[in-house]
């Protein structure tokens, strides 16, 4: 589900100087972008508007068959916000996002730096390897990871069982990784980070290629170590890229659904996140509560809008100081 579109966007703050010159408004560019806008509006904005409407309604199968939906005001929101279970899923979502985003950024940056250091052949080999992780569909990745961490034939348990008992204790052969939220989320984090760090790595690599090598030479002459070089040269220059990556990772990790649905499913409510909660309300049975599901989805969207707004603000600030 990785959306690559923003990646090809130019880093902000590098506007061509000529863009400020006022021109007569021309129709051509708008015509060119119109098909995209119309498709996005039909497939994305209209459903979002519908979700907004439905979150204030009671919508079940009878309404799907054409009966008018009953307006319930803020009842759906009152119900979920006063339900401790909602806050439990909210906590799971936020904690997971914090851990997964941190790890994704960390591992991704390290791999990016490594790729930059490697020779041509090795670099192609390693980037080929990480690209495979990136190209793997989430469903496939989730199935592979639940096999790896499964009982009877699971590779991870088999390896842990082979290690000496004094080191990690015995009884790993039948260890159930998906019994408690903490260990479920551990596996989920490994899976999600594995899949999303390549994007960070490749973006960081692209940024690194644009940093003039004189800067690094000067740093070396001044006797700066790798740690200092990173924080004094690489990080400030690549900050816009890191900001974009950070916000996109936050958005992706907040709405993780596929992997969790496959790994732990509906029978483990203690490990629910907001997406899974919304799904179970809206599509879990033949008696859908689409209004409730929409309300939960709307809350999730709101959180992400706040994150995006913060990000835009930071970007605008950065643009102003330049």
């Amino acid at each position: 589900m990785l959306d690559t579109a923003p990646a090809v966007r130019k880093p902000p703050g590098r506007k061509a100087a000529g863009a400020r010159i006022r021109r007569r408004p021309r129709l051509g560019p708008y015509l060119l972008i119109a098909p995209t806008v119309i498709v996005i509006a039909l497939l994305m904005f209209w459903p979002m508007v519908q979700i907004g409407i439905m979150s204030f309604q009671k919508v079940g199968n009878r309404q799907l068959r054409g009966e008018p939906a009953e307006q319930v005001g803020t009842e759906n929101f009152d119900k979920i916000l006063s339900d401790p279970f909602f806050w439990q899923t909210f906590r799971n979502t936020v904690l997971f996002a914090v851990v997964a985003v941190t790890l994704t950024m960390l591992v991704g940056t390290l791999v990016g730096l490594l790729l930059n250091k490697l020779g041509k052949r090795m670099s192609a080999f390693v980037s080929g390897g990480v690209m495979i992780a990136w190209a793997t569909p989430p469903v496939t990745a989730a199935i592979i990871f639940s096999w790896l961490f499964g009982t009877t034939g699971g590779l991870v348990n088999w390896c842990l069982d082979l290690l000496p008992d004094a080191l990690i204790g015995g009884g790993w052969a039948d260890h159930n990784w998906f019994a408690t939220p903490l260990s479920t989320y551990t596996v989920l984090t490994v899976c999600v980070v594995w899949q999303s760090c390549p994007f960070v790595a490749v973006s960081v690599l692209a940024g690194l290629k644009s940093v003039p090598s004189e800067l690094y030479e000067a740093a070396r002459v001044d006797g700066s170590g790798p740690w200092r070089t990173f924080w004094s040269i690489t990080y400030p220059l690549l900050k816009p890229i890191f900001m974009v990556l950070l916000v996109m990772s936050v958005i992706w990790d907040f709405k993780v659904f596929t992997q969790l649905f496959i790994m732990s499913g509906l029978a483990n409510r203690d490990a629910f996140n907001l997406s899974l909660y919304a799904f179970s309300e809206a599509f879990g049975s033949l008696n859908p509560k689409l209004g409730m599901g929409s309300a939960i989805a709307l809350v999730l969207t709101m959180i992400l809008l706040v994150v995006t707004a913060l990000y835009v603000r930071v970007m605008v600030r950065q643009g102003e100081t330049k």
Binding site: L266, A267, N268, R269, D270, E281, G284, S285, L286, N287
Partner: peptide, 18 residues
Amino acid sequence: AGWGEFEQAKKVLPNAVK
């Protein structure tokens, strides 16, 4: 008609047993 939600969407008994 509510059994679907009790057993499939909310999985009340499976979660209690767990």
